[in-house]
Amino acid sequence: MKVFRTLVKTESKLALRNMDSILFGILFPMALALILGVIYGEKPAFEGAGYTFLQQSFGAVAAIGICATGLMGIPLSIADYRHRKILKRFKVTPVSPGLLLFVQVAVQFAIALTSYLAVYLVLKLFFGYKMIGSTFYFLLSYLLVAIAIYGIGMLLASISPNLKTANLLCSLIYFPMLFLSGATVPYEIMPKALQGASDIMPLTQGIKLLKGFSLGLDLNNLMFPIILLSVLAIISFLVSIKFFQWE
């Protein structure tokens, strides 16, 4: 426990000093929430909808934190640690290098949760947002989406031979997911063809799930994303462990 505490404390400080995760994971979604709030205010999602546009968008904007920490924060810091041979140094100490990775995940997830909370507060305080569905189930689904996306992030870290490739792969996956999954540009305003392409992305399914729970929609429609994300999470974690390299 002492090791875990010390590592989390130091890694959190490093994350704060580095600012990347804070900027992309927390400040960016907060700004987006503000902009959406100013544009849409209390307008309904569509004519005759039982919920507002903001209520519909909440799940999507809250997912940006997961996306930034999972597809940038985690894979890039692991690749960086390998590149700097920090993992190798830990290998000649009693600590299991796995713990170091777990600490990374924990710190990044804390940033994602902070992001969720910050987006929620912006929408609630300035635009009177209220979650229709159950917060508890929403958080459960948030956890599932995080596990699935973090699994992809770990996978990226495992298969990248070096920091350069990791950077490239992360950008190739992060930016399309960020812009086409509905996290930034609302899924509902995309043309049909783009929606079809967007549906392939795991984050799109994750956002559907988050939207569903935040709007209190029928659980039956959400079974597909739940199963898909669970399978994806299991596969990516298994593959990333199999292909993991300390150096």
Binding site: K2, T6, L7, T10, K13, Y81, R84, K85, I86, R89
Partner: peptide, 22 residues
Amino acid sequence: FQQSNYQDKIKVKEVCEITHSL
């Protein structure tokens, strides 16, 4: 090791604290 590398933006004290905790 011959070449020691540390985390970006880490302080001397923090490197020592981590090692000490292990």
